[in-house]
Amino acid sequence: MRRAFLAITGLAASTTALVVLKGSPGTSQAAQEPPAGTPVGSEAAGAPPSGTDAPAAAPTAAATSSPWPTRGATRSPAARPTSRAPAPRTTTARPPQQPTTTRRVTGPIVENEYGNVQVQIVLNGDRIVEALTLELPSGPGETERHSDDVRRAYNGTSGEVVRRQGADLDTVSGATETSDSYRRSLRAAIERA
């Protein structure tokens, strides 16, 4: 509130001072310019034109009450506006952010009676964003079908590994050995990461 009052008061005083210093609307431009041969700045400071004995005009109250300095004007210490210094800004320093890097970590090959299982995870920072099987049991009949069930349940960007962000996975029905081997390879990959 105080700043707004000072700003409005200063604006009004500055405008008044500008009008007074520029002269009234009837004054011509030629009358405001110094005569040829007059040192620059002598009339602006209130000195009489050279060669005349006319006294300098006293500055008006509006010209001296402006809180902002004008060219060639001086203010007394009492005329200076009082304001409080702005409070220092405090900021909470953030730790520098490290660029996120995508990396792949591969678990070991885990053997079971149906074949080998090997898992690879893709990490973005510390977060698992994808899980892949590099090796699953394959063969005729149900072995291939159970491997496909494990792949669908655990792998991908929206599989159970990404949703749970760990190796605590539900066992795929009918594929207990393959599910256990998958979890062991996955745990080892997470530990390596």
Rank of each mutant, 00 (worst) to 15 (best):
R2F: 13
R3I: 07
A4V: 09
A4I: 08
A17W: 04
A17E: 04
A17G: 09
V19Y: 12
V20Q: 11
P25H: 01
T27S: 11
A31H: 01
T38G: 09
P39T: 10
V40R: 12
V40N: 07
G41A: 09
G41Q: 11
S42T: 13
E43W: 07
E43Q: 09
G46H: 03
G46W: 02
T52N: 05
T52S: 12
T52W: 01
A54K: 06
A54E: 10
A58R: 12
A58T: 12
P59D: 06
P59C: 00
T60V: 03
T60H: 07
A61F: 01
A61I: 00
A62P: 05
A63K: 01
A63D: 03
T64G: 07
T64V: 04
P67H: 03
W68S: 08
P69L: 13
P69N: 13
P69W: 12
R75N: 06
S76C: 02
A78M: 05
P81C: 00
A85W: 02
R89G: 04
R89Y: 08
R89A: 06
R89S: 05
R89E: 11
T90I: 07
T91D: 13
T92I: 11
T92P: 12
A93W: 00
Q98F: 07
T102N: 07
R103V: 09
R104V: 10
P108D: 13
E111T: 13
E111G: 12
N112S: 14
E113K: 15
Y114W: 15
G115Y: 09
Q118Y: 07
Q118V: 09
V119L: 08
I121W: 03
I121M: 06
I121C: 05
L123R: 02
L123S: 03
G125N: 01
G125M: 01
D126I: 00
E130P: 00
E130N: 05
E130S: 00
T133K: 06
L134K: 03
G141Y: 01
E142L: 14
E144H: 13
D148S: 15
D148E: 15
D148M: 15
R152L: 15
R152G: 14
A153M: 13
N155L: 15
T157G: 14
S158V: 13
G159D: 06
V162E: 15
R163P: 11
G166D: 03
D170L: 05
T171A: 15
T171Q: 14
T171I: 15
V172N: 07
G174N: 11
A175W: 12
A175T: 14
E177M: 15
T178M: 14
D180E: 08
R183H: 04
R184F: 02
R184D: 11
L186Y: 05
L186D: 09
L186F: 06
A189Y: 04
I190R: 04
A193D: 00
A193E: 00
